[in-house]
Design a protein around this nucleic acid. Structure first.
Lengths: 304, 304
DNA sequence: AAAAGCGTTGCGGTTTTTGCAACACGGCTG
DNA sequence: CAGCCGTGTTGCAAAAACCGCAACGCTTTT
C-alpha cells in the first residue's frame, strides 16, 4: 500500500522506485498483488501519468488513516516507555494511611506525571485475593497469611504496641504483658485483619481469649476509642503517629516475643515482573514506610 | 499483530495456534519480533494465563481499530464494484440537452443509485481539452476536430437542418441550398462550436462566407431567434425538437452533401478503460440520443 | 520513423517465514 | 516433595516470499 501511495505521489512507478530505492518491478508486483487481493483494479492502465481508480483512492485513503493511527500508537508507546502514562494499582492495609504514605505518593506522582495511580485499602485477606487475581500490582500489609503464589519484596520489623489513653493508670509503664492486655477492655479490628489474627493466636498460646469491647474495620475509630479511654488497642507505632505526637495517647511495647517480631511486607505476585516505574514505587514505599527494612530480596512468606 | 490479539483472546499461544492453524513457534516468534520492532514487552511473561502489558493493550487496540477501518474499506470497495457509488463525469454539447437526454440520465441514475453524476455542457473545443485532461469520462459532441488521443466509441449521422420560422416564405420548401442560406439573415453559434466551423468550411468551399446577424453560445437563444423570425439557424433536427413539435418552426434539409454527412460521436480518451457502469452509460446514451448509431467500434477520428 | 518513457514478466539469488522436534520453566496434584 | 501436564522458547531444515537484473511490449513524443 505504501508503494501505491508513493507511486501516486510520484506520478509513475519508476519515479516511486527512485524515491523508495527499490526496483520498478517490485513496485509493479506489489501493486498487482494488492489488486489481486482486493479483487479490483487500483490504477488506470494506459495513462501517461499514473491515475488511480475510485477504488485506488479509497485504498490510499484507508492507508493514510492507518498511518496516522500508527503514529498515534507510537506516541502512546513512547509515553508508556517513559512511564508518562499507565496504571499503577496498589493495595494496603488501613494502618499505613498517614503522612508518610502521603509524602511518598506525592513525590512519586510528581516524578511520573500522567501516570494513573489507584490505591485500595482493605484487610489482609482481601489483599491476598487481589494479588492472586492480578488486580493489583503490589500491596503493603502485615505479615500476611502464607500463600505459595505471593512473595515479599521487602519486609521490616514493626513491633506491635498497646495504644493507651495518656491518663490511663498503665500509661507510664515501660511494657505490657499480653496476659495483662486480655484483662483490659480492648478496641480491636475485625478478625479479617492480620493483626487481629496474630493477637488471637498469641492469646490462645497462653490459654486466654481476646474479647474486645469494641470492634471495627476502621483504624481511626480504634484510635479514637483509645484516646477517649473506652479501651486500649494494639497497633504498630506509626499507625497512631498523629495522636501520639499530640500526647493524647501513649504506645507501650508488648512484651510477648511473638508480637515483637511482626513484620510489614511489600507483597507481590510470584514471578510477576514489574515495569520500572512500578518497581520504583515499591522502593519509594520501602524507604518511606519501612525505614528499617531489610535488604531487598525475595523472601518467601511460607514460614507458618 | 493478529496473532497477538488471537493469543490474548484464546488465553495462550498454543490455543491461538489451534485457532489460526499455525505452529505455536510461529506465534511466539511473531510476537517476539513485534516486541523487538516496538521496543517494548507486550505480554507479561510467566503468568499462567497470558496477560498483556499496557503497551500490549495499546497495540491490540490499534490493531482492532485498523481492522474495523479495513472492513469499512472492504464495504466501500464492494459498493464500488457494484457501482453503488462512484463518479461519472460526462460532457456534451448544448444541442443534446432535451427530453431524450433527460430520460436516459433518469433511467441510468435509477439503475445505479448512489452514483454521482456530473454533466458539463460546453463547446467542442473545450470538450477535447477536458477529454485529454482526463477530467471527464466521455463526451457527446458533433464531429469533433481530430486529435490523435481522442477516439469515437459510437457515431450516428445527424443531418443538419435549417431551422426556419413556420411563416417564412421558404418554410414550405423541401430542401435548401447552402448558397441560399448565405443570403438569408442567420442566427448561429460561436465559432468554437463544431457546427459553426463546418458551416464556415462548407461556405468557403463554394466561395461564400457566413455572416450571421446574431451570434450566441446558447442554442436555446438561436432557436428563439428562428421562431420569432429574426433569422434562420442551422441545427440537427433533435436539437429543436420541442419548437418543431409545436409547429412554430420547421426544419428544412440542407442539400450540401458535406453537411448531410455530419456525425454525432460519443468520444473518449484513447485506451482509457472504463468501469462497467460508465460503459453502460455510454451504451444508454447511444440508444437514447443516437438511435441510428452505427455498430459500436473504435473509429479513429483522424480523417482530417 | 525513431527514440524515450512506461509497466510488465522470467529468472536467479537472497531473505524471511514456517513446521517439526526438543528443550526449559512454572503450576497443579497426589 | 516429586511427578506430570501445560506453557513458551529455540535449532534446524524445508518452503515460500521477495528482490534486483535484464529483456520485452506498449505508448507517447520528437
Amino acid at each position: 500500500m505504501g508503494v501505491l501511495l508513493q507511486a501516486w505521489r510520484s506520478g509513475s512507478m519508476r519515479a516511486a522506485s527512485d524515491v523508495l530505492d527499490v526496483a520498478p518491478s517490485s513496485i509493479s508486483r506489489q501493486i498487482a498483488q494488492l489488486e489481486r487481493e482486493i479483487g479490483a483494479t487500483l490504477i488506470e492502465h494506459g495513462a501517461r501519468q499514473l491515475r488511480l481508480t475510485e477504488a485506488g483512492y479509497a485504498v490510499i485513503e484507508y492507508y493514510r488513516a492507518r498511518q496516522t493511527g500508527l503514529e498515534s500508537l507510537d506516541a502512546q508507546l513512547q509515553d508508556l516507555a517513559a512511564a508518562r502514562t499507565g496504571n499503577v494499582q496498589l493495595v494496603l492495609g488501613e494502618g499505613f494511611l498517614g503522612p508518610a504514605l502521603d509524602d511518598t505518593l506525592d513525590d512519586f506522582m510528581l516524578a511520573y506525571p500522567g501516570l494513573k495511580l489507584s490505591v485500595r485499602v482493605t484487610d489482609t485477606t482481601r489483599m491476598i485475593k487481589l494479588l492472586l487475581d492480578d488486580a493489583v500490582h503490589f500491596g503493603v500489609g502485615f505479615h500476611p497469611a502464607s500463600h505459595p503464589q505471593v512473595v515479599s519484596l521487602y519486609r521490616a520489623p514493626v513491633p506491635l504496641m498497646a495504644i493507651i489513653q495518656a491518663s490511663h493508670p498503665m500509661a507510664k509503664r515501660d511494657s505490657i504483658e499480653l496476659a495483662e492486655l486480655c484483662d483490659q477492655p480492648l478496641a480491636l479490628m475485625e478478625s479479617s485483619f492480620r493483626i487481629r489474627q496474630m493477637l488471637d493466636e498469641a492469646a490462645a498460646d497462653i490459654g486466654r481469649i481476646i474479647a474486645p469491647v469494641f470492634t471495627s474495620n476502621s483504624i481511626a475509630m480504634l484510635i479514637r476509642m483509645a484516646r477517649v479511654g473506652h479501651g486500649m488497642t494494639v497497633l504498630p507505632e506509626f499507625s497512631a503517629k498523629a495522636p501520639l505526637s499530640q500526647g493524647e495517647v501513649r504506645a507501650i511495647p508488648l512484651l510477648t516475643p511473638r508480637l515483637q517480631s511482626v513484620y510489614v511486607h511489600i507483597l507481590a505476585r510470584r514471578n510477576r515482573q514489574m515495569p520500572h516505574h512500578i518497581e520504583d514505587l515499591a522502593v519509594r514505599l520501602r524507604k518511606g514506610l519501612l525505614p528499617s527494612a531489610l535488604a531487598p530480596g525475595i523472601d518467601d512468606t511460607t514460614p507458618s
